[in-house]
């Protein structure tokens, strides 16, 4: 699907996606992981990649081993240093210093697998998998 790079369109696309996908998401946990990771990935592109320009985001979802494979393409700015952010949880301090952002990449990394990014011919290519069941954390 092709999504205009605006937060309202991301919300609408997520709602349409879940109406279409309903039966293919076997558990509420899978649905939660997919919805949150997609929201974070797409809104990140809207707010950073396309921060000063209009644009579109292409989203392709394919069934993959034990889950779903997501490919996301945009023509916005590259990631800083053409590298994915580390996604560390922001530090908690005094009330006035509490973080109001910086959770996005942490959540994406926490809930997805095989996250890969590359910049190619003016496009950002991001792919990741979300599994039916979270792998057991050792």
């Amino acid at each position: 699907m092709v999504i205009p790079a605006r937060t309202e369109d991301v919300r609408e696309a997520l709602c349409r996606f879940f109406q279409a996908m309903g039966a293919d998401l076997p558990t509420p946990e899978m649905r939660f992981n997919v919805e949150l990771v997609l929201a974070e990935v797409l809104n990140n592109i809207v707010e950073h990649g396309y921060r000063d320009q209009e644009g579109e985001i292409e989203l392709v979802v394919t069934p993959a081993m034990d889950g779903l494979l997501f490919n996301v393409v945009d023509r916005g700015h590259p990631m800083p240093n053409e590298t994915l952010p580390a996604g560390l949880l922001p530090r908690q301090g005094a009330v006035e210093d509490l973080p109001e952002g910086g959770f996005g990449w942490f959540l994406i990394r926490e809930l997805s697998q095989d996250l890969e990014y590359r910049r190619e011919a003016g496009r950002n290519l991001l792919s990741f998998r979300i599994m039916d069941k979270q792998p057991v954390q050792l």
Binding site: N43, P99, G101, G102, F103, G104
Partner: peptide, 9 residues
């Protein structure tokens, strides 16, 4: 549903 922007709010 709440995402990281909602959490920030």
């Amino acid at each position: 549903f709440i995402d990281s922007s909602g959490l920030g709010a």
